[in-house]
């Protein structure tokens, strides 16, 4: 089932084109990693898909176009890169905000809402500090609270803008595992990320953006080739295989045609 279908999407911020003719489709069960260098257009792509950035092109959400913002909120949850919490509200209150599109008020959440809020807090391991003020948490804790907020929205599709930044390795893995789990439950996740190792290991599919265009879209092994890492990111990386997945370890800045260091990892696995 198609959860998000984007075709021929163009976005310009002022006179500067940010996205050029971008098309892709996300179906249930996918965990898509959105990768690309700084300024490639990852955040803009996520915002445009939500209608937060003015764009040209076709965006269908769950097969429908022109949804109201309320209907859209029931189908897509969004985790913004911005992690600012304006007021010292409690952690639980922030997570409970995720239920807002479902019609229950901030304060008196019904039983169904309570269950989903509890589950979201448990999944992100924040239930222990549910009564603390969200503004006084550390960066990583705050990130987990905001992820739990997005989970509580309980939408079929989650768009997350750099959800793993600021998290310690164990919580990064918890997050990746959770996203993979959501996908296996029949939902879908699109997450922009910079950690190519995490992306290669956990995502079912990667979309590589560069200069506002999709340069590769497919399974991690097909997308992350030494060639592409060199041309798009300008880096040399070690590409290897572990028992249960791919290993990508950036090593150094690519120096012209000198590719000696990547010879060992240059087996290409297409498809």
């Amino acid at each position: 089932m198609s959860l998000l279908s984007v075709s021929n999407l163009h976005v310009a911020l002022g006179a500067r084109p940010v996205l050029k003719d971008v098309s892709f489709e996300v179906t249930a069960g996918e965990f898509v990693g959105l990768i690309g260098p700084n300024g490639a257009g990852k955040s803009t792509l996520l915002r445009a898909a939500l209608g937060l950035a003015p764009s040209r092109g076709r965006i269908a959400i769950g097969g429908d176009e022109g949804l109201s913002s309320r209907q859209r909120a029931l189908r897509i949850a969004y985790l913004a890169q911005e992690r600012d919490i304006a007021w010292p509200v409690s952690v639980e209150a922030v997570v409970a905000l995720g239920r807002a599109p479902h019609g229950s008020a901030f304060s008196n959440a019904a039983a169904q809402d309570r269950r989903i809020i509890e589950q979201a807090m448990r999944r992100m391991e924040i239930a222990a500090f549910r009564d603390r003020q969200a503004t006084q948490l550390s960066g990583g804790e705050k990130a987990r609270v905001l992820i739990a907020r997005a989970l509580a929205q309980d939408a079929p599709l989650l768009l997350a803008d750099e959800p793993a930044s600021g998290l310690d390795p164990s919580h990064q893995i918890v997050l990746m595992r959770l996203f993979a789990e959501l996908a296996s439950e029949g939902r879908a996740v699109v997450a922009s990320m910079h950690d190519l190792g995490m992306a290669a290991r956990w995502c079912s599919r990667l979309i590589l953006l560069d200069h506002g265009m999709i340069v590769a879209d497919g399974a991690p092994r097909a997308v992350l080739t030494a060639e592409r890492l060199r041309s798009v990111y300008g880096i040399e990386a070690h590409l290897g295989e572990a028992a249960d997945g791919m290993i990508v370890q950036p090593l150094d800045i690519a120096a012209g045609v000198d590719a000696a260091t990547t010879q060992s990892g240059k087996e290409q696995h297409d498809g």
């Binding site: 915002r47 209608g51 937060l52 909120a73 949850a77 911005e82 905001l146």
Partner: peptide
């Protein structure tokens, strides 16, 4: 309440 988390997040919540 939704704007507590910023305008983008509020907009994404409808």
């Amino acid at each position: 309440d939704a704007l507590t988390l910023g305008s983008d997040t509020a907009a994404s919540m409808g």
